[in-house]
Design a protein around this nucleic acid. Structure first.
Lengths: 366, 366
DNA sequence: ATAAATTTGTGCGTATGTATC
DNA sequence: GGATACATACGCACAAATTTA
């Protein structure tokens, strides 16, 4: 292993990783002396200052200890593991959202038996609040973090906090959505496929004018939109801008209602609508019935997530299954593995294949 | 204060002490910017490197944090000034319940600005799990606890944990429900009144056979039942056992469906049904429509809580308002007061007066 | 026992990069 | 773009602790 001066990672950081790796892999054992500062200087062709920076950090993080006049030694594992707080941070966009409580439930199911507890952070659609919670989690020395990133379809202003987490060796798992540039561990649904399945189903039923309502700052939502476009292309149905509606408002402000009104003002209104989640689908449902139209007779409707809402509505909603609790459990398990392996570099990614759940909100046009 | 080059203590060590002292004495406050590195260089006539050495140590020890391009700041909490953990435990019956997420949201709104975070515990309708979480919260040294007690209508096997909390001086607030024998601080709804209002409304509409579905191990639910009986008595309507249905299953198992079937098998079925919450009301709604009956034409329906479900359902549900988020905020404020006053004996109790919200799920019989 | 060599600790000077305002 | 503040990195010197010749 060598140090690359061209790497975006600072040299001292690279050296830290090299030492940590050789400690993890047992190449250097507890209380064994490692190379002296001057040896490391010549081996890696870096200055004494840089060597000391790296080693100083590792001493603070409990990987090494120094003895003046003698050398630097590998610390035993205990000094590291005993620093655990047994707290796992969970930051979500809206804790009171209809889906996230189930995810939290799933996470708790997995981590509580292992002695961990959840510290909750609620970003509330606000990247600044998200930043505050991230800093807070770092200050609290959480053992790991599960986060549903806020406004994931836009460039995140909070990237630096994730770098901080990595520097500190705090593993994190993104859930439901992820920031690609970080190449993080994550658990997600194949949203493109989900959107495709929903649109394909409507196309197979003979619908030619299929509308979509999605949230433009939400990555899964935009992926569902991609899937929708993919299906239209496959079935050679024209893509029409006027049938595509998006919003950025939080769901609890009922963004669907005005969009539905717009959709039914156009000359050839849609015969089917795909909503990126069930909450919006039910808002659409209400707005559509207010216009005097009936579901599925006049308009077919497909949601996403298979939430409780989908079953509780008057006409059970055709929707796409979301693993919810299972996804929480998976993220919890993944994080526990990352914590226990204490390897910062490891990346795990898991993508659920969604399934269409056919109920009664769609009609065949044939 | 100055740095003495003759001192046996290293300069960086002296600077650390100076900064720590001014932090302890409150001369620099949390999140306040301290002098820049170059300022400290000139003030104390030491090199940049020495300043960075001192400040780097203090960052590692949790006294300071740095923001590139902005400055170095005094860290809050995480230390020395007190033994506070700035963690508030929240234990609920079901975190994924439709109401509790809003309550958590409300709690978070109040406590997060004060630097506290929520550690979540999910009892999942299980008193043993509740016990495990209570012990866990005690072990974690939470600064306070907010709890929705599980199976609150039954004698609690977990009383001893609340005594432990009191012994340890950890204040707690019960929410939505409470264990009377403890004479605890709590925030609740006047459930008897709520049940009374719901039943009174149906009675005023001319209904003579009013059924109730409630959860028998849940204190608020049984109080709503009491209010129902009170109203019947007041209006001199006979109380009929066959119209009263209760269950203990968690709501997500759809306990309402079989009960509705039973209700409509009896000779004179009810013309109105009061369900102790909206979730059950919507399950009832579905079961009723499955029987070929229409709401409100054939059966009137009243729920409780005014959840999102009440508005999203096909026929907007008449229900009783529950403060939800506001209640969470109130409980948070109350707990913060108890923490700050650090008086164990103080008891605060707050009872919201519920209001009936009339929508379209009830019909007048007159 | 002493001196020399090694190793870590403290400290200064300088330069360049990057983030923020 | 310029000023400011922190981040990384190189070089040098000397001190203190320890080991070894």
């Amino acid at each position: 292993m060598k140090i690359d001066p061209q790497s975006p990672l600072p040299k001292y950081h690279q050296l830290k990783e090299i030492i940590k790796e050789s400690s993890k892999k047992g190449m250097i054992k507890p209380n064994e002396r490692i190379q002296s500062e001057s040896e490391l200087m010549t081996i890696y062709k870096i200055s004494r200052h840089t060597v000391r920076h790296a080693m100083g950090d590792l001493v603070n993080e409990g990987w090494l200890y120094r003895e003046p006049g003698i050398g630097t030694f590998c610390a035993d594992r205990l000094s590291r593991t005993s620093k655990k707080t047994f707290i796992i941070g969970v930051i979500s966009v809206v804790v009171s959202n209809y889906i996230f409580p189930s995810i939290i439930h799933g996470i708790d199911n997995v981590i509580h038996p292992k002695g961990y507890s959840i510290v909750l952070g609620n970003a509330n659609h606000n990247t600044e609040k998200e930043a505050a919670h991230l800093q807070d989690m770092i200050n609290r020395n959480v053992d790991g973090l599960i986060i549903e990133p806020t406004r994931s379809a836009l460039p995140s202003p909070n990237i630096k906090y994730f770098h901080k987490l990595r520097e500190k060796g705090i593993p994190f798992v993104m859930i439901d959505s992820y920031l690609d540039e970080l190449n993080p561990s994550y658990v997600c649904v194949d949203d493109v496929l989900g959107g495709y399945l929903a649109a394909e189903y409507l196309l197979e039923l003979g619908h030619g004018r299929i509308s979509i309502i999605y949230k433009s700052d939400h990555l899964p939502s935009t992926k569902r939109f991609q899937g929708y476009k993919k299906a239209l292309k496959k079935y050679k149905v024209d893509y029409s801008e006027e049938l595509v509606k998006s919003f950025v408002l939080p769901e609890d402000k009922n963004p669907a209602s005005p969009l539905i009104k717009e959709l039914f003002k156009i000359k050839k209104p849609p015969t089917a609508i795909f909503c990126y989640n069930d909450q919006i689908a039910l808002q659409a449902y209400k707005a559509i019935t207010k216009l005097g139209l009936k579901i599925p007779h006049d308009v077919s409707l497909v949601g996403f997530d298979d939430s409780d809402l989908a079953i509780l509505s008057e006409i059970p909603l055709t929707t796409v299954a979301h693993p919810k609790g299972k996804m929480g459990e998976k993220a919890g398990k993944m994080l526990l593995q990352l914590i226990e392996s204490s390897s910062t570099s490891q990346v795990q990614q898991f993508i659920y294949k969604p399934q269409l759940i056919i109920r009664d909100s769609c009609k065949s046009m044939c």
